[in-house]
Write a protein that binds this DNA or RNA. Structure first.
Lengths: 147, 147
DNA sequence: TATTGTTATACTCTATAACTATA
DNA sequence: TATAGTTATAGAGTATAACAATA
């Protein structure tokens, strides 16, 4: 492929990817289960804590690509529900270290099952090749999100 | 792959895809160019009109996966800027048919170039195989959004 | 009556600016 | 001074409920 052909292809991708991402996000939000305790944003934070262990609030904000005041708000919600606890950083007491509680871990497990039920069913209807494409695409989407 | 293995894989996909979509959307929103006339939501509507021709407001709402009042609001913004015009449906005068104006078409062209600049550059740094994965993934994302 | 779209209203998420506590 | 996080406040986007016009 010539460099100018690559540019055209990138232009097509760059035009369609944001719209696809926006539409799919709205679809996923609509599929929210009414019994869920956690919003999708809160679930992302809980999942990050489950995966990476305790994290400073600023690190969570960077990872989720929101500003610190937005993450303060999300962590407030999680803390009020007893899903996380805050403690000051050991070496730097300005930091706020966020930890997932046992209740948070269990709620994450239950809510995640509810929330992904619809999507898992749809994915199950795809053939193996299409699932493989999506599996390969996710790290690329995450990489673009981090770029 | 056994059916239970497929279920596990789907569970992994179903867990990671929503978070990746959410993070990438936030990244894309942050990349907004200050000179853009159109929000990303408004651009999606203008792009749908460019691609499909005139559409009823309800059809636009369905396509973008928002409720009619939300689409009314987006179309109001587009109309106030002179980017679209409304007219009553010919066979059913309850409908509101939305048309892209010449100004809308030109603004879409310019804003799209601005907005996709960052993404196109990132995509250009991927190798051809990764771009192909993303190209293949987009129709799947759209399909999931429509499901 | 049923449907298409609008108006009124409220909620969620996010940001910027100003502030507090610590480094 | 500079940095990590919080508080105060505002804006964007979305939804539900009630309404108007048309079928």
């Amino acid at each position: 492929m010539s460099s100018s052909e690559a540019l055209v292809m990138d232009a097509g991708l760059a035009r369609t990817l944001p719209l696809a991402v926006m539409r799919l996000r709205r679809r996923l939000l609509n599929e929210r289960h009414p019994d869920n305790d956690l919003s999708l944003g809160a679930m992302a934070v809980a999942a990050a804590l489950e995966h990476h262990g305790d994290m400073a609030l600023g690190a969570l904000a960077q990872r989720e690509r929101v500003r610190p005041p937005s993450m303060t708000r999300t962590v407030n919600c999680l803390e009020e529900g007893g899903y996380v606890v805050r403690r000051p950083g050991e070496t730097d007491r300005r930091q706020v270290i966020v930890s997932l509680t046992d209740k948070g871990r269990e709620t994450l497990r239950v809510d995640r099952a509810r929330r992904t039920e619809w999507l898992a069913q749809r994915l199950g209807q795809l053939d193996e090749a299409d699932r493989a494409i999506l599996s390969d695409a996710i790290p690329l989407l995450e990489m673009l999100a981090r770029a």
